[in-house]
Design a protein around this nucleic acid. Structure first.
Lengths: 228, 228
DNA sequence: ATGACAGTGTCACTAAGTGACAGACAATGC
DNA sequence: GCATTGTCTGTCACTTAGTGACACTGTCAT
């Protein structure tokens, strides 16, 4: 029975998780496009459903509200940052790690990933004027903050609910958000992406300043173990 | 003076702004109470209308959505912080100014103000589990951030859209938010408010660290004039 | 084959929110 | 005094977001 469940998890359940994610992303893509082209209010659930080729009912099975249809595409646009933070090795500085990862991203990302990223940037811009979308963006930033909290806790060898850690995480992720908005807005205004080659340094310095120099530099391997 | 206000209250255009604000606050108070007592989903627009003694239609005239009914009470809970920031004299340190202002608040605030503040704290706690309310809270924090941007720009003698200023403002207000959540949660857990006598120092130090020491200390009177 | 199950469609339904119009009420003009 | 004007509010019909219940379809395990 255990093996049965395991195989089920792999074939059925596990698959369905991925599939669900894919369907949500597909819906989100169309929804984001429509939101961008004609505004949120002017876009109906029926329209989204038709664009993606599903029944309206099914849309509501995947999303609890119209605005939340934008979430996956927004979340995905910060996902690589979260992944990058998760994979931040103690012995590397933040700029070195971000620089390496963004090179890897530029090399490995598919055309669809790039298109999705642009859609995400558009949603972030939309969130300036559409409160409904701003929610999605702020929620995504909230996710980044939680991620950041974990990373900082480990890096400093403190608990994740420590006030110090929470303060650093909040400040650092707020800085990250501002840089995201800043670069995103510039990209939409047609600025050449090459202009932002120094983004890793920009981010690392902002994080360093936001955390009083506590976060950003390499830490010695055993620093993360000592709890005091 | 009071008579002046009262007469102005009756006069036409000028008053309607204040009156509108009062009505919204009254609605918000009842809505927040209901949200806290029975949850957001379980509270209908009709219920709010009945509780406040207005027709449902009028509720939707004042608020564009059910959740946004919580906004004024949430906003008000950070309003004194915004007012305090606005009135931060250049020659004072942040802790000194906050300490002075919070003493003044404790002395001058009416019973209803205090009750509203507690309601606001409850809404902030609610926003942990109710995404709809979290929006209101994050929006209020957004307001604080904008306020903070202005204050920091003036204090450092830079433009409000300067990236440096925006980074500092975001980090500082994020720190402020975390402390708000931290103290609010503690208060709801029954911790004695006297425990937080050191809040001004806590806030000032957090802001100072979040801004790499740039914001928090007194600035010389002419520092704010020089643009570079 | 057959049964279990997850995903989807259909349809009726509740609740959120809007538009249009009418009445209440105070301030203003004559 | 009385009509006028503008703002706020209530009533009611209406649209749209979102849910519940049930039937249908394809896939997998037995």
């Amino acid at each position: 029975m255990v093996a049965d469940m395991a195989s089920k998890e792999r074939s059925r359940g596990g698959m369905s998780e991925q599939r669900r994610h894919r369907v949500r992303l597909e819906i989100s893509r169309e929804a984001a496009r429509l939101f961008w082209e004609q505004g949120v209010d002017a876009t109906s659930g029926d329209q989204i459903a038709e664009a993606v080729g599903l029944s309206t009912r099914t849309i509501w099975r995947h999303f609890r509200s119209k605005e939340s249809c934008a979430e996956p595409i927004v979340t995905q646009s910060v996902e690589w940052e979260m992944a990058t933070l998760r994979g931040w090795p103690p012995h590397l500085s933040l700029e070195d790690h971000f620089a390496a990862e963004s090179i890897r991203f530029a090399r490995e990302a598919s055309a669809m990933d790039q298109a999705d990223t642009m859609l995400g940037v558009k949603m972030i811009r939309l969130s300036d004027t559409e409160p409904a979308i701003r929610t999605a963006w702020l929620m995504a930033c909230d996710q980044v903050e939680r991620e950041m909290t974990e990373i900082i806790a480990i890096r400093l060898g403190l608990k994740a609910d420590d006030l110090e850690v929470r303060l650093h995480a909040a400040a650092a992720s707020a800085a990250l958000r501002v840089i995201n908005e800043y670069i995103g807005a510039a990209l939409l205004d047609g600025v050449d992406p090459r202009e932002f080659a120094d983004a890793p340094a920009l981010i690392a310095n902002a994080v360093r300043r936001a955390t009083a120099g506590t976060v950003g530099d390499p830490v010695s391997a055993d620093a993360e173990d000592q709890q005091e």
